[in-house]
């Protein structure tokens, strides 16, 4: 499959229309001079990746991404940034000291993922050939049944771990109140 063949497919235009903003947004997340801007670029990157999942007919995953990551995680990010400090304008020193190791780690993850995916696609067909699943939606029902049949134990285990993390988080964040403060809290 040549590049001109590839670009002739309308679905690939859609892919580019989402992938390019996604990459740009992902870069801006780490280069942006403003925390809130960075978080908003994260929204754009996540939205674009949700779009990519839709292209892959993984509707459910796409909307989970939107609901959980955009709707909850980034909103919480923004909420946290704004409730503590939310400067408008550039900030001079946003970069963390460990940015180069972090970049190296990110590149490493990218390389490994690329190598894995490339290996899989090589087995199925040439690079750029459509994956067999593309175009056929994974029914959400099958996902659901998978969760409570074949993958029940991992599912429950993950749920248990999350619950433990939640309780741990509350315990850490909770300030021990003096009796007077507790009364105060009860009054309010």
């Amino acid at each position: 499959m040549t590049f001109s063949d590839w670009i002739a497919e309308p679905v690939n235009w859609a892919f580019l229309a989402m992938a390019i903003p996604m990459v740009v947004a992902a870069l801006r997340v780490v280069t942006s001079r403003n925390v809130v801007h960075a978080a908003l670029f994260l929204v754009l990157a996540l939205a674009a990746s949700a779009g990519l999942f839709i292209l892959l007919s993984a509707e459910f995953v796409a909307w989970v991404l939107v609901l959980v990551y955009i709707g909850a995680v980034v909103v919480l990010f923004l909420f946290g940034i704004m409730i503590t400090r939310a400067p408008i304008g550039r900030e001079t020193n946003l970069s963390h000291d460990t940015r180069w190791p972090a970049a190296a780690a990110a590149l490493g993850v990218f390389a490994v993922t690329f190598w894995l995916i490339n290996g899989v696609t090589q087995q199925i067909g040439g690079f750029g050939d459509p994956l067999p699943a593309v175009g056929r939606a994974t029914p959400t029902g099958i996902l659901g049944e998978g969760f409570i049949n074949r993958y029940l134990i991992p599912f429950e285990a993950v749920g248990f771990v999350l619950l433990a993390a939640l309780i741990g988080g509350i315990t850490l964040a909770r300030k021990d109140l003096t009796p007077a403060e507790e009364e105060e809290g009860a009054r309010v």
């Binding site: 925390v35 409730i83 503590t84 400090r85 900030e91 001079t92 020193n93 946003l94 970069s95 963390h96 000291d97 850490l172 964040a173 300030k175």
Partner: peptide, 20 residues
């Protein structure tokens, strides 16, 4: 003043979340 990174590290050491 101050930086986000600086603030993050501060938040990490103090258990209680300081709101401004």
């Amino acid at each position: 003043e101050g930086t986000f990174a600086h603030h993050l590290s501060e938040a990490a050491v103090s258990v209680e979340l300081e709101t401004e």
